[in-house]
Design a protein around this nucleic acid. Sequence first.
DNA 1: GTGAAAGCGCTAACAT
DNA 2: ATGTTAGCGCTTTCAC
Lengths: 336, 336
Amino acid sequence: MNADRSAHPVTMRQVADAAGVSIATVSHVVNDKKGARIGPGARQRVLEAVRELGYRPNALAKNLSSGSSNFIGLVADAIATTPFAGQIIHGAQDEAWKHGYVLLVANTEGDLDAEDAAISMMLEHKVRGILYSTWFHRSVVAPKALKETEYVLVDCFDEKTPAPAVVPDERQGGRTATRLLLDAGHTRIAFVNTTTPSPAQTGRLHGYRQALHDAGIEYDPALVLREQPQQEGGYAVAERIRALGVTAVFCHNDRVAMGLYDGLRELGLSIPHDIAVAGFDNQEVIAAHLRPPLSTVALPHYEIGAAGVRVLLGLQSAPAEGPLLISCPAVPRSSI
Amino acid sequence: MNADRSAHPVTMRQVADAAGVSIATVSHVVNDKKGARIGPGARQRVLEAVRELGYRPNALAKNLSSGSSNFIGLVADAIATTPFAGQIIHGAQDEAWKHGYVLLVANTEGDLDAEDAAISMMLEHKVRGILYSTWFHRSVVAPKALKETEYVLVDCFDEKTPAPAVVPDERQGGRTATRLLLDAGHTRIAFVNTTTPSPAQTGRLHGYRQALHDAGIEYDPALVLREQPQQEGGYAVAERIRALGVTAVFCHNDRVAMGLYDGLRELGLSIPHDIAVAGFDNQEVIAAHLRPPLSTVALPHYEIGAAGVRVLLGLQSAPAEGPLLISCPAVPRSSI
DNA sequence: GTGAAAGCGCTAACAT
DNA sequence: ATGTTAGCGCTTTCAC
């Protein structure tokens, strides 16, 4: 028969008895300890007993005894709101898993008390470290409690404290998006930037200018507009885009592009024939299903999450100065 | 001074010494044990020592010692792909937290091995129970390993095994969506159902028919179309919708509605003036920002997650027969 | 090769 | 009102 329900979990002791060896021996073979010399017979019997009894090591005991837990904490400010946080979690999880760690996830939805509670809870579970993440790239001030352990900032950074951080390379992303347009032969390219001050706002603009510059095209401030970073913003800006007489538009994000699609269509302009459009974020639900499907640049959330745990575990190091930049790959579709 | 880094965590022992009491006393005051009678002096000194030393209880030791962990496992099949899973997590987390539990999250992206590994890991951490969740409502066969602990199926159900399950009330949702249209005076209402067999497909259809019936309108199978449940499907069906001569359409989900918006517009039809549209899912990124904003019905993922842990903890019970149904609330906006 | 025994930090009886 | 002590299930050092 198999292990009987949670009531009486099988312990090492029982395995040892069943195999006729000591508990130390069981420990050795179960963990495949290098140094230990175990006779083939004993090993065999232990393995068998483990199977027979359906033994599961007790991770709690193991952690306590070995003095180090296999937890990594991840506090996120908005799991629920966007798919972005999900991708960070996914990346962090895969990477953590790969190194024998388990993710302790806490969602705070921006609530400071929840944040404190989450960090306390993680500290009490003796996590190996904490990933403090936000769902959009921004500046934060890291909660004090974080300092009681190792931590890395994920998709955010703290200007005051020199803590390791991992963020998307907005600048390179902006360059990439612009280049997508440039490479298709466009030379008069508008940029619908966001009204919200943020690394994305300044970074993508820099990238845009740099791409233009590299292509030998003079930067024309008149081609840079500002709108709220949503569908409504994109829709509202359509008229002005047309008036500008550009042949291509780089939108601050996919949602703006979605709104712009509507606006342009109403004006009788077709994409990409009359005007080419590039987005940013690669928000699957939108980008892949617009008509035509939107060419965009992806925010590498998965990679950011993964890099976060690598930095935390010391497997990869952030630059001495400033955050580790993860690059934003192009995702060409049919809007250019 | 404060606690010095993770190197030498402060233990109960040290607090006891500092306060000049025994470790048992510390345990009592720290946990605010009811039965224990502690002198005000001692309590005072302990509390002070705790603050002074920056003591954090070691949750691992606590769990080991007390024999029960405060973990609840949540295995999800697609954290990254949609915002839906995120909402389930959020709900589960809030509820778990409320009862002193912590979520151990594992993302499997549908990979069976990952699923096994995740469950094993949770079992080894002696979780109180496991929430097995999917990102869209469907039938599953629960992994065998689950049976080693308590578990509840979240947003899915197992026809073979009678395990507690929590799912959205598709039928009531379909009824609600249809009623939204009915209440606005429409009587000839098309339903663009999905091509994919699923509880959503049959449930929403039932709801649609029932609402019609309750309103004294005869069901006309010709008004029920089938399309793939994405923007493309909605777009493709526009012509046929017009040909049907209906004044309202209930779409299987928001994405279909989004595609239909495009198709209808191309046909020169305006929403809601010429045709009213209702969606399903309430996928924020889309529904709230379409033009006009989409009236829809929400999939109550947050509630489903929360109910899942309540059922797991025995705070709420699933019906003897079949899953616990969570109702889908209407989210009226401007497309009707 | 294998086992005995001393903890890991805490809880919970049971003494005092 | 407070202290002693025996574990919880495991790792690890050191004997045999």
